[in-house]
């Protein structure tokens, strides 16, 4: 029996949540859960998910366009459900809220795990979203497994790959999470932040905003403008 990893981002491209989902799948692979085809494309549910080979494979699917029946269909034969999601205004993206409401009472008893990443440096900025997920598990009668909260999510889609610096701490915690997923066990909340100090992250973020404005042909002073009309 495998694991279903749902990318909770509304993006249908290789965003941070999708990359984190792949990194988790890699950690599961290292624990001999399954192997991941290189460059495999995640698919939106409920059409066939990106199936991984090997016994007890993990599957990774998008949540945008995924209906509650579609999620339930994809969960058939799975031993655990994992959400990998971005923090949206201190909580969950809206489409995930609807999806979670849609599966209430339909998949009871399944172990549930999550990875949440936010753009702030501090991992504990995800704590309210963690509570929302725990409330969901309680109401849905799922077995609360574990959550990994990551701060500094803006670094995930930067020049760095997810292996090694600056994500050594993240990979360590992903390994712990993967072990508990494999065992169907629960564990304490996990936290990770990038392997460089906050001021470096802030500098990198600001440079990134200016770079994106430049690519969009937006004048730097217009980044600060106020909307009157």
């Amino acid at each position: 029996m495998g694991v279903l990893i749902v990318s909770g981002s509304p993006k249908k491209n290789r965003g941070a949540s999708w990359r984190l989902g792949l990194a988790l799948a890699e950690s599961l692979k290292k624990l001999k859960l399954g192997s991941l085809p290189d460059g495999g494309e995640a698919q939106s549910g409920p059409s066939p998910p990106m199936a991984l080979t090997g016994e007890g494979a993990a599957s990774l699917i998008f949540s945008n366009g995924l209906s509650a029946p579609g999620l339930i269909e994809n969960l058939k034969g799975k031993k655990a459900l994992v959400f990998v999601l971005p923090l949206y205004v201190d909580a969950l993206p809206s489409h995930l809220v609807d999806l979670m409401e849609g599966i209430l009472g339909k998949i009871e008893g399944l172990p549930f795990y999550a990875v949440i990443n936010c753009g702030f440096y501090e991992a504990d900025k995800n704590l309210v979203a963690v509570e929302i997920l725990k409330n969901f598990c309680r109401e849905a009668n799922l077995k609360w497994g574990q959550v990994l909260a990551f701060g500094g999510g803006g670094a995930i889609n930067s020049l760095f790959g997810l292996k090694g610096f600056p994500f050594r701490g993240l990979n360590l915690e992903l390994g712990k999470l993967a072990k508990n997923i494999l065992a169907g066990a629960s564990g304490p909340d996990l936290f990770a932040e990038p392997d460089f100090p906050k001021f470096v992250y802030k500098l990198g973020a600001h440079l990134q905003w200016y770079w994106m404005a430049f690519k969009n042909k937006v004048k730097f002073k217009d980044l600060y403008k106020k909307i009157d009309g």
Partner: peptide
């Protein structure tokens, strides 16, 4: 909803950053 906003309200708030 689970300690947060309903999906439709959250959809508006998500678009307000």
């Amino acid at each position: 909803v689970f300690g947060g906003f309903s999906g439709p309200v959250k959809a508006i708030i998500d678009r307000s950053i």
